[in-house]
Simulated scan of single mutants.
Amino acid sequence: MIAGGSIAGLLCAREISSRGFSVLVIEEDYEIGTPEHCGGLVSLTGLEELGVIPFKKTFEHMIESAEITSPNGNSFTINSKKQKVTEISRRELDKQIAFQAQKNGAVIKVRTSFQELTDKGIRTNEEEIDCKIFVDARGVSSLIHKDRTGILSSAQYEIYADWIKKGKVEVIFDQEKYSGFFAWVIPSGEGKGKVGVAGKGIKVAETLDKFLKDKGEFSTIRKIFAPIWIKGPIKNFVEGKTVIIGDAAGQAKPTTAGGIFTSGMGGIYAGQAISEFLKTNNRETLEEYQKKWTVRFGKEFEKQVLARKILERIDNNTINKLFETITPEIINEVSEKDDFDFHTGSIIKLLGLRGSIKTAQTLIGGEIKKLLG
């Protein structure tokens, strides 16, 4: 029984049903893939590992560059062709994976919400359902009662605007406007895309409206307001007969809150472990899920959490100074890196930290040693 019909829940369902076990996915919204909170960036290698070759309507286009702008307006552009990052429609990607799961035998129900655990299974808004394992894939909403300190408010609008260029992502840092995070522009084609902001203690709607007004003419097609989680994985992915996956397990990247690949792999590893448990009834097999995910992503996430702490502690003046140290050689080196999902190496280079550890240590203390380790 899986609550949450997003990417992690659906991949988990696909894995369990492919091994001959019955699985029901319930989604509280009226449609799989809606509302689309996600920016939609994922590497082709990541999609391949998730077992997805995008349908034509899932695939939007390839991202060729990322322009990164400092608070004082200085910017540099990274060539991202080597990373093979694509912008996809999350609505269509989720539906594509739902189709894979259904073909394997999974049953999917929308407009059905999880209410509580019972002795034999769970209670939904419609009925009680018996199940051996309950999978919590309900996203950040599951974390709100556990730890609010890891949650930021975010707003993302889908807009039409001629200043959005196909293939070019924009990231804008400004600690006064987007404290501890940034603003972003992700194209879904020429003249259309997703524009968003997130930050600590900011009024996201007002902040995004101001950002758009400064940018130029635009038309808004859709508005989404959603919390994002930036604190890394929770302590236990398995609690009793509950298995926690995706955003609910903190499997989104602490640096960007993106998690198509990292959360998706959480769903796959959990599905494999649950299938093994259903076959053997050995609880140790369930623990394999957290071990596998941590071996794959644990170190990278630790470094991303540290990079996030650094971002939270530096002011605009420091960011402007760091931008001044970024040379064409550093930009070329980062452009040559081909791993979109393990990117703290690029962050270290861009911050100029290897070359100026003394300066960096004065700015951010001993945490820098851990980041470089």
Score class of each variant (00 low, 15 high):
Ala13Glu: 07
Ser17Pro: 03
Glu36Leu: 03
Cys38Ile: 09
Gly46Asn: 03
Gly46Cys: 04
Glu48Ile: 00
Lys56Gly: 13
Lys57Glu: 14
Pro71Tyr: 01
Asn74Ser: 13
Phe76Lys: 12
Ile78Arg: 00
Lys81Glu: 12
Arg90Asp: 06
Thr112Gln: 11
Glu126Trp: 08
Asp130Ile: 10
Cys131Ser: 15
Lys132Trp: 00
Asp136Leu: 05
Ser154Ile: 06
Ser154Asp: 06
Trp163Ser: 12
Ile164Ala: 06
Lys166Ala: 13
Lys168Val: 13
Gln175Trp: 01
Gly180Glu: 05
Lys192Met: 04
Val204Gln: 11
Val204Lys: 10
Asp209Gly: 12
Phe211Ala: 04
Lys215Asp: 04
Thr220Trp: 01
Ile224Leu: 03
Lys235Arg: 10
Ile245Met: 07
Gly246His: 09
Gly258His: 02
Gly258Glu: 13
Met265Ala: 01
Gly267Tyr: 03
Ala270Lys: 06
Gln272Ile: 15
Gln272His: 08
Asn281Gln: 13
Glu287His: 08
Phe297Arg: 10
Gly298Tyr: 03
Arg308Trp: 01
Lys309His: 09
Arg313Ala: 14
Asp315Ser: 10
Phe323Pro: 07
Asn332Trp: 02
Phe340Glu: 05
Asp341Val: 10
Ile348Cys: 07
Ser356Tyr: 06
Lys358Asn: 13
Thr359Asn: 08
Ala360Pro: 00
